[in-house]
Design a binder for these strands. Structure first.
Length: 261
DNA sequence: ATGCCGGGCGAAGCCCGA
């Protein structure tokens, strides 16, 4: 079973780019981020035509996440627990049953957090605390679990082209990286890193200053696996060629293959 | 480099992303 994550930076602007990739990559499950549309405006038609069931947690203008699945989506829940006052659409979770197996999947759009001297950074760190609490709960189920999304976290110096340019950025600040390690240390596996040791493999390149041409990127989209999912890990990779196409997102898809039949 | 691009909103120019 192939499970992917893709920050599309507007589902409306990216529809053709997305459906082209869906046709060639043929993922079973896709976690999308930054839809930038309300539930009613999600383009169900072109995506359901390709055989996907769809669960959306949308929002006007900002954020918005979804899960696409060729198998039925069950027990869909929207929003990250722990703060009823948080109205950002940054989290959706569902259970997928396929071939007698079950996998729980979440699509995550973790806050950017810049500038760091504002409440945006506080919000990011608080959101990460809530994610850690929720992940601890989900891990207690002892089942295959994939926490997939745009984490807006550069985990290590190997995951950025020019570390010096990011030292004071919310994506690379020590506090951010420490919280990410706290999440990993619950017992999650960074699927891409488990399959690839080489440095400088990125999932995001800025639209500006020729970042793509210079390979000036960062690795901030991650698929984190529970031990039960990591047991099934066969492969993981980044579909970087998508960044070079017409009207690309600034992120590219990243995926895992799990031996779930 | 800190918004040079790109998208939303809405119909010019601002907000936002990373």
């Amino acid at each position: 079973m192939k499970i992917a994550s893709f920050n599309v930076n507007s589902i409306k602007a990216r529809l053709t780019n997305l459906t082209d990739w869906l046709k060639e990559a043929e993922p079973d499950i896709v976690c999308l981020q930054e839809l930038k549309c309300i539930d009613e405006n999600f383009p169900h038609g072109p995506i359901e035509e390709l055989g996907y069931n769809v669960a959306v947690n949308g929002q006007k203008t900002y954020n918005g996440v979804a899960i696409l699945s060729k198998h039925p989506l069950e027990d869909v829940s929207r929003g990250l627990p722990g703060n009823d006052g948080d109205d950002h659409a940054r989290y959706i979770e569902a259970v997928v049953s396929a071939n007698g197996s079950v996998v729980r999947v979440a699509s995550i759009y973790l806050p950017n957090g810049n500038p760091v001297d504002t409440d945006k950074f506080t919000y990011k760190l608080g959101w990460m605390d809530r994610l850690i609490d929720h992940a601890r709960e989900l891990l207690s189920y002892e089942e295959p679990l994939v926490l997939a999304g745009d984490y807006n976290v550069i985990p290590t110096i190997d995951d950025v082209h020019n570390p010096a340019a990011w030292v004071n950025d919310a994506l690379f600040r020590p506090e951010t990286r420490a919280k990410f390690r706290e999440l990993i240390n619950l017992g999650l596996t960074d699927a891409f890193r488990a399959c690839h040791r080489e440095a400088h493999r990125y999932t995001f390149w800025d639209y500006q200053a020729g970042a793509w041409a210079k390979d000036n990127g960062i690795r901030i989209d991650h698929l984190l696996l529970s031990p039960q999912a990591a047991d099934l890990l066969k492969a993981s990779d980044i579909d970087r060629a998508v960044r070079g196409r017409e009207k690309p997102s600034d992120h590219v898809p990243i995926w895992v293959e799990l031996d779930l039949g």
